[in-house]
Amino acid sequence: MQKRRKKRLAKTGPLLLIAAPGLLYLLINNYLPMFGVFLAFKDFNYIKGIFGSDWNGLENFRFLFRTRDAWIMTRNTLLYNAAFIVIGTVVAIFVAILIYELGKKRRVRLFQSALMLPNLFSWVVIGFIVYAFLNADTGFINNTVLKALHITPISWYSTTGPWPFLLVLVYLWKFTGYLSIVYVASIAGIDKSVYEAAQLDGASKIQQIMRVTVPLLKPTIILMTLMAVGRIFYSDFGLFYQVPQNSGRLFDVTQTIDTYVYRGLMELNDVGMSAAAALYQSVVGFMLVLGANTLVRKLDHENALF
């Protein structure tokens, strides 16, 4: 028994040692700061410090639920993320299949890289690209497209209607290339003999995709979705803040938990309330991951994350 354990340690020891700095980093960077959750329940005071400051119960959380904005921002955060997960996954898989079917030619690779490019832009830059299109005075849409169609110009940054679609569109433009990489890799990993067998059985190209590729992608899809669900309570700050140019008129459709907290605390610089907002997002996110995983385990035991 003892001997076996020693043997195992000798085998895994060096590997553990290599992992050690990484684990240490994770501990210092991701676990130690968790002590900061204290702050969510404290009335922070610089002289008294983190541990000395007075407790104030759930007072710091109150601002999140103070107004009807609480409902609006929670709804926006959840619905946009749900839309991103569903539409994003479908489009990414679609693009991945197309890219894979085109083969490994050089121009396909070039095309794939081009799809990746928007992912490297910062939201500020993307915000201005969108602005160049939608600007009320000189924008491309108002000045060229709508003019040619003889439609009266729209004041885009004060009209809420189109924004849910615009935001999803911008999201897809930025992330599709990136998301599809994972799926391209997964498809490439599928055993070719399965397709050969399907071909012999007379399956058409569409049938091969629907009956072979998609089912075999299921583990990847589940993994990616579970990871996304964990962050469903977080919103991409840049997307919701920079792209609508922080326009007040659009808050009903662009306000998310992150932007609300940012706007509310810009003036106050309050440590306790920021910590409370972050804790709230983390806890709900954590519960959602557990919930989603339980669901997956029930439906399909093999593919559950844990």
Partner: peptide, 22 residues
Amino acid sequence: KTEYTAVTNVIDQYLPALICGS
């Protein structure tokens, strides 16, 4: 503090458009 955060958000939403005439 709680009211400040909430009110600041409301001001952000309405004031710019009002004071700029949009």
